[in-house]
Amino acid sequence: MANSRAFIQFYDEPMWESIRAQRWALQQCDDCSQYRYPPGPCCPHCVGMSASWKPLSGKGKIISWVVFHRQYFDNYKPPYNVVAVQLAEGPLVISNLVGPEPEGGWIGREVTICYEPDAEQGSIPKVKLSAPPAA
């Protein structure tokens, strides 16, 4: 076994730099304003070639979740969760929920991006439950 590692291709490098700086950024299309994930050479919505890296708001909500009961990586000991999060900017991303777990259902819960140290990537974005709005 080994640790999990990022699969970093040409367009991923600026994203992982932004994550190491704890300001996760994605490309926003200069033509149609759509965000894209994973990073890539053109906009899947309008095929525009021009894009700008924009830091994320850090807001999102849980779309789905699983719990691993089998070990695949040295640095992930089961049981551990993985969540799919729809970012406020639109794209779905995969992460882990850290801190308190939701009581009742997970799906639909608001989460906020946070950062943890990571042996392979330096830093890695995770999510935690957002504070409930003041009553």
Binding site: S4, F7, V66, F73, I94
Partner: peptide
Amino acid sequence: YHAPWGYTSQGALYAM
């Protein structure tokens, strides 16, 4: 692509 979060295997994709 999602290995950095421990998310691997086609079974896990279908579990989600």
